[in-house]
Design a binder for these strands. Structure first.
Lengths: 342, 342
DNA sequence: TGTTAGCACTCTTGTATGGCGAGTGCTAAG
DNA sequence: CTTAGCACTCGCCATACAAGAGTGCTAACA
């Protein structure tokens, strides 16, 4: 459908625009290496490409800018991922250099390095905490009527929350309760914990141990939801560096959307394996219609997965980001699986 | 030094500018209620006020704008704190309405509500975690060579970190160690924990229990620093709402500075009791030379303190913010002391 | 028939110009 | 001491104009 020459022109146009953020004109393009024909020819071809919807003009006599369709075609057919430059690899590897033994810490660092490397915003999703398995439960009394509930999972994740305890439960009773809790709930996933606690409470109540039932019940209230959302950001402010974003209003709504954890599933569709690129209005959120988002998944062991996302302007350096994410996804999978298995 | 009329004019000028963000002219001012003299008189007085450095002009024939000195005089002498409107009080009280029993949670909420109420950015400092007292230590083994260290403090704060454990320590040995740790370290402040651990390690080593010494030592490594910085933000993006900030560059460096936890002590001088207002270049950080910062301290019990700060433009609604912070500081002190004492 | 040089045309950008309005400072009268 | 009046100063805005970059079209060329 597109001739060789049109492909070349489209590719060079997109590349140039990604690099310069300026509409690219025919004369400018003609000077590029690899172009053996004149600016007039380019003008003709560009007119065709515009007719087909791959390019756009900002006004009648301006240079051309890729349309969303143009970007889409570019990433689908013209993207030739080149190997990462050495510096980038070194930087990426630096994430793992001081053998951190905590999943969360590694992910945090990845978010940071990634945003530094790209100058875009990175969003990383850790593995789904709700699937982690309870390793140990404990209750530490603080005063006569409050205690802190602690849940340690197999991944080393610790959930904790302060909760009120029924009047007059003495320490030895609490200890007994903790033993019962551990006996019955170790091995259960955080996801199932709530319903299992409910069942256990019923059981306890049936055995006429009302005081304990109350403890169970408040304990249950306390552990309903994991507190932290398991989302890590890097370079939240990098949007401000992009010349593409100058409208304070748009910037604000974009930043708003990204911080709001409810929106995260709209930005990073969960369960999406592999690498995905969403350009402009392909994004679910209208606040992101001027952005492109590249996401990739990574694995922890056989079961768990996480996601990495880069949010930048449509005029994003797709080639570079794709290579970076490919590499990081692999490295992260390897490292986190190692930590997970130990 | 200043006549009654000059005081009045200064006050009304600042009030008007705070409200409108527009330079205020003599005619405009003459129309205000409370002004019984003509615009010409106002012009004369304003010229004097400008001469004394309380007002400034943006250009030769513009209205006047308060200078930093003008703001300073305004907050020092002309601020008549009025009682908070009912809606504000209701909103503030909503922070405490569902009896949260965790200090951190209350502070987080305060930061949020405060930023919503003011449309500025709020920064809250929690009590110094390092002064909290160890209530319980535990070590939960995850695999054969890693475990998670957990420290619960008297405030219900939980620190946790995964750390490697020496080869071949079996669970019963670890349990024994945890008992020793608890025997010797409960009651110590987090601040002293590190040095105390060092001493204990020496002790253990002297008794030729090398394997345990190694455990102690890695445990010590793990607990050197409290992980979280105990700083909570509300409305980080509210800066973008202020008409005073339009320069993306300045916005960026301001946001950068606020996020960087090293800079926090420069924004909120620690140990400052009571309410303080820092206007423009009175701030230690040059990135904040266009901002005013109002800080106030609050108490938790007799010993511990925290701080609240509001960062906004110099053209800040000082009257309102001062009242809000006064009230919140009191409420927060009461509530957190209650939680602390239980 | 595909390619290219040439040219008229369009549109943005930057600069100069003038009128309008808001505000000031000064003067002179009350 | 206060104030009305007035000339003056700027910023703001619209208009105008030239320069520059880029396009589309046409006609010539290989």
């Amino acid at each position: 459908m597109l001739t060789e020459r049109q492909l070349l022109i489209l590719k060079v146009t997109v590349d140039d625009y990604i690099q310069s953020a300026q509409p690219v004109g025919s004369n400018q393009l003609a000077k590029k290496s690899g172009i053996t024909f004149s600016s007039a020819t380019i003008r003709n071809e560009m007119a065709d490409l515009e007719g087909m919807g791959f390019l756009e003009k900002t006004h009648t006599s301006s240079g051309r800018v890729p349309s969303e369709r143009g970007y889409r075609y570019y990433v689908d057919h013209l993207l030739t991922p080149r190997p990462l430059p050495k510096e980038d690899i070194i930087q990426l590897r630096s994430i793992f250099e001081d053998k951190i033994s905590e999943t969360e810490e590694v992910i945090k660092r990845s978010a940071m390095i990634l945003s530094e490397l790209t100058n875009y915003t990175s969003i990383l999703l850790g593995p789904d905490v709700r699937r982690h398995i309870v390793k140990k439960l404990s209750i530490v009394p603080l005063t006569t009527n409050s205690a802190v509930a602690i849940i340690v999972t197999d991944s080393g994740h610790v959930e904790n929350r302060v909760f009120p305890i029924p009047e007059g439960l003495n320490p030895s009773e609490i200890e007994k309760m903790v033993n019962i809790l551990n006996e019955r709930l170790v091995g259960v996933s955080l996801n199932d914990l709530h319903t299992r606690l409910e069942q256990e409470t019923m059981m306890i109540m049936k055995q006429h141990m009302e005081r304990y039932g109350e403890l169970f019940s408040t304990f249950r209230q306390a552990v309903i939801l994991p507190r932290e959302k398991n989302v890590y950001y890097g370079g939240k402010l990098n949007i401000l560096n992009q010349p593409d974003f100058h409208d304070l209003h748009k910037i604000r709504s974009l930043m708003d959307v990204m911080e709001e954890s409810e929106h995260i599933p709209m930005i990073i569709p969960v369960g999406n394996q592999g690498l995905h690129i969403r350009i402009g209005s392909e994004n679910a959120l209208s606040a992101m219609e001027d952005c492109s988002v590249i996401t990739v998944s990574y694995d922890i062991g056989e079961e768990q997965t996480g996601s990495i996302a880069i949010v930048g302007p449509k005029r994003m350096d797709y080639k570079r980001i794709v290579s970076l994410l490919d590499t990081l996804s692999g490295d992260l999978s390897k490292e986190l699986t190692r930590i997970f298995r130990n």
